[in-house]
Amino acid sequence: MAKRKNLGRDIKRYSVCYFMVAPYILLFLFFILAPIIIAFFFSFTDFNMVKFPPDFSGLDNYIRIFLEDDDFLIAIRNTLVLACVTGPISYFACLFLAWFINELHPFLRAFFTVCFYAPTISGTLYVMWGFLFSGDQYGILNNVLMDLGILSEPYQWLTNTESMLPIIMVVQIWMSFGSAFLSFVAGLQGIPRSLYEAGSVDGVRNRWQELFYLTLPSMGPQLLFGAVMQIAGAFSIGATITALMGYPTTDNAALTVVTYISDFGSIRYEMGYACALSFILFVIILATHWVIEHIIMKYASD
């Protein structure tokens, strides 16, 4: 009873704060939380975008996903492979590049930041990789390799099952110096000089020690933010694949959960199934996030 009274009083006392977070809370509720709940609800139905309300089908969708759907296995495998390869690589690449350019002259630093960040903000510029990997004999890579005598006839980079995943990884890493990279650059700038001075007094002898004992621990929030962004990014690769290789890709060799969801949602009109798929993806991302968060916070708070 007393607690509730306190709550009421607290709300009143902090009403200005509530007012200030209200826009974000509302947006969050309507555009993030509500869709997740709705999707969760629809995942137990056979919703087909026409019949409303849809029939309740219980766990049918989930049973089909886990027990019958071969393509889902391909999708989840590809998604995990892409996430496990591009996620860490791009995360550490962001971190080290940010670290490398940190000590440059401010002008040069700004210049390199723009260079690395540019692919992310340039929207659909990744279609240029389509020219590079074009299957035409005049495609850039084919042309060079045929000139060098490595290939004797054009190779279909974007439709051959063997080359698709590696290409996506390269493109994805190229594109991944996004907000994580920026937050690292900002985080590195935010560490006070006095910390390093104190460190050198306390016996830090080389740059590696400086990095592991001083720099990274004081960047906890940025590291976490970066990790969240990279995980979400790595798990939601999809638009790039469709733009470069079309949909569907040969033998589903570059099928990811995201492209699989849009297949069911917008081509097959099996929205219930698509909702179940996206809920599974949501759970995977959440779990990964939880693990990573624990690792990083443990490290950063040491």
């Binding site: 439709t159 099952t161 081509i267």
Partner: peptide
């Protein structure tokens, strides 16, 4: 019929590549 087009393409590429 969406399944016909895509699988024919797969079959085609299996043979050609």
């Amino acid at each position: 019929s969406y399944y016909v087009g895509r699988n024919l393409t797969y079959a085609f590429r299996q043979v050609v590549y």
